[in-house]
Amino acid sequence: MLRAVPSSAASGSAAPQVSVRVVELRRRIDALERAGSEPVAGQRAGLLGALPFGAPEIDDALPWRGLALGALHEISGPSRDAAALGFVSALLARLAARAPGVVLWCRRRGASYESGDIYAPGLAAFGLDPSRLILLGAKQGRDVLWAMREGLSCPRLLAVVGEVEDAAVGLTASRRLQLAAEKSGVGCFLLRRVPPEGGQLNNAPPKGGHSNTTPGNAEEPSAALSRWHVRAAPSGPVPGLEAAPAAQRWLGPGRLRWHAELRRCRAAASREWLVEWHHETGNFTVAAPLCDRSVEQTAAGLAI
């Protein structure tokens, strides 16, 4: 069910020129295309609509000019790094800057030994006030799903985030979440940790290009409106030192970058971007894909 994306992607800021009629039509198509049978999505979704990335390349590729709120979005990432977590935190920071409310973050208590505790100063660095977070530590994975559904029934929440590690969520559970999100208009992010591609014991992780064949999880049916896979990418230039010489290695990591791959989305083609997060402005940009390739190789060569 691909839908024609407006061909104004090149101009970048097409939104103001779209007529009221087109907006209205889009909204109706929206309502039809979401999973639920209810014609009218939640009140908040109607007001806030979607959360744009701020990068026109991504927003134009998505049918709602951003991530639709009042819907379930699944974001998976390798379990050994916090890339998906960072990506979600950036999205939440953007959301928190636009609307009031608190975020319910559900995870299994035991997950902190595997991937660490959510660290308040780290959230603050993303521009997300830690006091706007309610952190729920569930004992079991299914309690996480229950708590998410419970949170989605409260339209005063800004968003609900759930971390699921291994267990398959399944079509039924994800559909329930999607319906609950639609009803209340609260954004829902399902954060999934998948084993790193190439296996846990592989000492030499595959370099360069990615493979689309994450075992098991990618093919699992889900009612999520969009499914993303986020991997870490070599960081961009250090803010303020964009013109630094090649000895960038000692300047340390710069702006956060991720390979954000849109694996599945209703009414949009799957694509991949190299996104860069600007924490000063709270914006995403799409980085030029080749900009770090040479640096990365020389650095790796130096290291070995």
Binding site: A124, S131, I134, G151, S153, R156
Partner: peptide, 27 residues
């Protein structure tokens, strides 16, 4: 009322999963 709704949510979560497991963060 919004605060009220959130505290009701906390009640429901805490009632089932334990109030000590529903936490807030601060610096």
């Amino acid at each position: 009322d919004g605060d009220d709704e959130v505290s009701r949510l906390i009640d429901r979560l805490g009632g089932r999963l334990g109030f000590t497991n529903v936490r807030r963060l601060a610096l």
